Computed example of a mutant assay.
Amino acid sequence: MHPFKATTRDWLVYTLLGIVADALDTVLTAISPPKRPQGSFLPSDIDNLSNAELLELRKSAPKLHPQAGVVRLTSGTVAKPSQDMDEDAPDPSEANALDRVFSETTIPVPRVRRVIKGEWNFIIVMDYIDGPTLAQVWPTLSTWRKCLVAFTLRRYVRQLRRLQAPPGAPPGPLTVQGPARICESPVFGAVQSHRGPFASYAELSAFFNDRHRRVLDVRNVPQDDPVRRDLFDDSKPLVLTHQDINLRNIVVGEGGRLWLIDWAWAGYYPPWFEYVAMDTQNESARVSGTDDEFWKMLIPFICGPYFRQYRWLAMMSLALCWV
């Protein structure tokens, strides 16, 4: 369901389906609380190796994908370079996000086993999750199984939205120490996907509202037009968002468990960023791994039908092309 084609009726249907799904989630959680896979708590096969040995091992480790920087370090681990936009970042934001998700949710994610400071970045050593991606499995699933996948992903997103930014924490990448960081998100547009840093939520809102005003000025929209009062939606607290949920970033593990990987763009953002980012990432089959229209229809169910926010962003998207 593309936001521009969505009607009030569509919004109502998705909203009601979400209410029913969340009620079912609450009941299922009370009856049988989800548990993290036991393997996540077992020792790792790199525990007895030094940082120097791991860095040396990485030099000859095979890549998991020809164009990716992730390598199969050992039978149980992978190594991935940090992707922070800040050259002087004191810690890797992806590892920070994974640590918080691992410790405060039951979402299956790779456990971070080691963070090593390299010459130019950090090397994150984490568990290797064996299994095909959902992109590979999706065409073989029945409609019912696809709906169960969407329900599971909605439960994951619901858990993430309970992880609010700590008081005073700036929007964007998670940082244990140091100032606000440059934000990278599909929400900022294709021309320049990184902005900031933003010292506060208000500063993030001001950035978008200023771009909104500049577009209206270019289009000579009258000052008393109601559209000028339609501002950036910062009505909800900043929450942890993944921002790259697509079929290629979901691994189908043992027993059909869905593992959420690649948290490089994760950060604290308004809840509707997850919807916009997911819808944007899944417009291209090259990125998402599928052209399946049913998958695209499930996105508003998984993340919530934030059609209005998407249309607002699209209306002022010209201003996101400006530096």
Rank of each mutant, 00 (worst) to 15 (best):
L148H: 12
I124M: 06
T140L: 14
I116C: 10
M126D: 00
E119A: 09
K146G: 09
R154L: 07
E94M: 09
T152E: 15
E94N: 11
F102V: 12
L134D: 10
V157G: 00
V137T: 15
L160Y: 02
T105M: 08
T140F: 14
S103H: 14
R145D: 08
R154G: 02
T152Y: 07
V157I: 09
K146R: 15
R161A: 00
R145T: 07
E104C: 13
V149F: 10
A150G: 11
T143H: 12
T140A: 15
K117Q: 12
T106F: 14
Y156Q: 04
E119W: 02
L153K: 00
D130V: 15
G118Q: 02
G131A: 11
V157N: 00
Y128E: 00
P132K: 11
E94G: 09
R100V: 14
W144D: 09
R100L: 11
T133Y: 07
R155E: 11
I123N: 03
Y128L: 04
D91E: 14
D99H: 15
L153M: 10
F102P: 10
F151T: 13
D130C: 14
L153D: 00
A89D: 08
T143R: 12
F151R: 15
I116E: 05
R100E: 06
T105D: 05
R158F: 02
R162G: 07
K117C: 09
A89G: 09
L98M: 15
Y128Q: 06
P132Q: 14
L160S: 02
C147I: 04
A135E: 04
L160H: 03
Q136P: 08
T143L: 13
T152K: 14
Y156T: 01
T152Q: 12
R155K: 12
I107Q: 07
D99C: 14
P139S: 14
C147T: 07
R154T: 01
G131N: 05
W144Q: 06
P110Y: 03
V157Y: 00
R155C: 10
N121P: 01
A135L: 01
L141A: 04
Q136G: 12
A95Q: 07
R145V: 03
R111Y: 00
D88N: 07
Y128F: 05
I123G: 02
F102N: 14
T105F: 04
G118Y: 01
A89V: 08
I107A: 11
V125P: 06
L98G: 11
R113V: 01
E119C: 05
F122A: 06
L160K: 02
A89W: 05
P132F: 09
T140M: 14
P92V: 06
V137Q: 10
V109M: 11
N96V: 13
G131Q: 06
R158Q: 04
W144G: 07
F102M: 12
A135Q: 05
I123D: 02
S93K: 11
T133D: 08
E104H: 15
F122T: 07
T106L: 12
P92Q: 05
Y156E: 01
S103F: 12
D130M: 15
R114Y: 00
T152L: 09
V137Y: 07
D127S: 13
A95F: 09
Q159L: 02
